[in-house]
Simulated scan of single mutants.
Amino acid sequence: MTERIPALKREGGVPRSRRGRKLLRLLIALFVIVLIVLFFRSPLSEISEIEITGTQYLSKEEVGLKLGVTPGDSFFVPSIAKLKARLTEMKPIESVNIIKNFPGKLRVEVKEYPQVAVQLSDNGQLLAVLSNGLTLPIPEGNLLDKPILSGWKPEDVNLNALCRVLDELPNYLLADLSEIHPDPSISYPSRIKMFTRSRFEVVTTVDKLKDKIAYLSDIVQNREPGKIIMLEADTYLPYSAENVTDE
């Protein structure tokens, strides 16, 4: 009588194919780590060029110093957000855009506050007045086509408000204003007196200037020179009529 031989049980443990896959994954991970280490130790991970554009009142050297990185530093650290935060601490800068182009190029696009007026310093130097109220030396070669601010104190709150309004005016209207000084009264603390290159004398307030400027533009283009008051009511008197009244 033939007897059946029982089948032998397989030894326990991980199948050979599974052990092979684990070993392959481990080798790949080690290879990737080695590549990462080599990359961060190579020139590819460094800044090779820094390009700064848009500066007018600040020098590129000042911006670069505040940026805090130089060619040879890490391309990835600090982050773009941290670099922006450093530059926006500079008072003339309104905004900044930073672009990293791999490999190695760092582009810094600066936007400074625009110039809205000119001011004469105590020592006779002409200063640019920016839209945030900051005064800086005028770069050589800049055209002096902005109004001159006379008689203003740096701590005057109306000065900053005026600079913001001037920033919103069209260039052709801003170019016609030759001089602006404070002329406050009890009723109108923010009252100002302006003179135009077209020989008009204008009285208004910082608060009303933006809304009243269209009326001023209409008179300047269509009337002879004279005095204009733009407060609660608008009045216009040509110099010729004023002379007749005096006589």
Rank of each mutant, 00 (worst) to 15 (best):
residue 233 A to P: 01
residue 205 T to L: 00
residue 48 S to G: 13
residue 198 S to P: 02
residue 201 E to Q: 13
residue 179 E to Y: 07
residue 233 A to K: 15
residue 118 V to F: 04
residue 199 R to H: 07
residue 189 P to E: 10
residue 230 M to G: 14
residue 189 P to R: 08
residue 207 D to E: 12
residue 83 L to Y: 03
residue 13 G to V: 10
residue 178 S to H: 09
residue 135 T to I: 03
residue 247 E to Q: 09
residue 239 Y to K: 01
residue 175 A to H: 08
residue 105 K to W: 05
residue 29 A to Y: 13
residue 165 V to H: 10
residue 106 L to S: 02
residue 200 F to Y: 13
residue 148 I to P: 11
residue 35 L to P: 02
residue 83 L to Q: 06
residue 174 L to W: 08
residue 191 R to V: 12
residue 6 P to M: 03
residue 33 I to N: 12
residue 89 E to M: 05
residue 190 S to F: 00
residue 100 K to S: 13
residue 110 V to S: 05
residue 216 L to Q: 03
residue 88 T to L: 08
residue 186 I to D: 04
residue 208 K to H: 08
residue 166 L to Y: 04
residue 135 T to M: 11
residue 26 L to D: 02
residue 126 L to G: 07
residue 62 E to Y: 06
residue 121 S to Y: 11
residue 59 S to H: 15
residue 152 W to T: 14
residue 58 L to V: 05
residue 209 L to N: 02
residue 185 S to Y: 02
residue 6 P to W: 08
residue 105 K to L: 12
residue 100 K to H: 12
residue 51 E to Q: 14
residue 214 A to L: 13
residue 24 L to F: 14
residue 154 P to K: 14
residue 16 R to G: 04
residue 91 K to F: 08
residue 86 R to N: 06
residue 194 M to E: 00
residue 192 I to C: 01
residue 101 N to C: 11
residue 202 V to Q: 00
residue 137 P to C: 10
residue 102 F to V: 07
residue 60 K to T: 09
residue 155 E to Q: 12
residue 77 V to A: 07
residue 72 G to R: 12
residue 48 S to K: 14
residue 233 A to L: 05
residue 206 V to Q: 01
residue 163 C to Y: 06
residue 80 I to A: 11
residue 36 I to K: 08
residue 243 N to G: 14
residue 155 E to T: 13
residue 162 L to D: 04
residue 144 L to G: 04
residue 100 K to Q: 11
residue 237 L to Q: 15
residue 218 D to I: 11
residue 133 G to Y: 00
residue 234 D to M: 09
residue 87 L to N: 05
residue 201 E to R: 04
residue 62 E to V: 08
residue 34 V to C: 06
residue 247 E to R: 08
residue 178 S to L: 05
residue 166 L to E: 01
residue 49 E to I: 03
residue 90 M to V: 09
residue 220 V to G: 03
residue 104 G to V: 06
residue 145 D to R: 08
residue 181 H to G: 15
residue 190 S to R: 07
residue 212 K to Q: 10
residue 56 Q to P: 05
residue 108 V to M: 08
residue 125 Q to E: 05
residue 189 P to N: 06
residue 132 N to G: 02
residue 119 Q to V: 11
residue 74 S to G: 13
residue 176 D to K: 11
residue 133 G to R: 01
residue 10 R to P: 14
residue 161 A to Q: 07
residue 168 E to L: 14
residue 232 E to I: 12
residue 190 S to E: 06
residue 178 S to T: 04
residue 76 F to W: 15
residue 192 I to T: 00
residue 59 S to C: 11
residue 193 K to D: 02
residue 25 R to Q: 13
residue 110 V to K: 06
residue 115 Q to V: 09
residue 216 L to K: 04
residue 66 K to H: 05
residue 57 Y to C: 01
residue 212 K to A: 09
residue 66 K to N: 01
residue 54 G to Y: 03
residue 202 V to T: 02
residue 215 Y to F: 11
residue 25 R to L: 10
residue 207 D to F: 04
residue 32 V to L: 15
residue 118 V to Q: 14
residue 202 V to W: 03
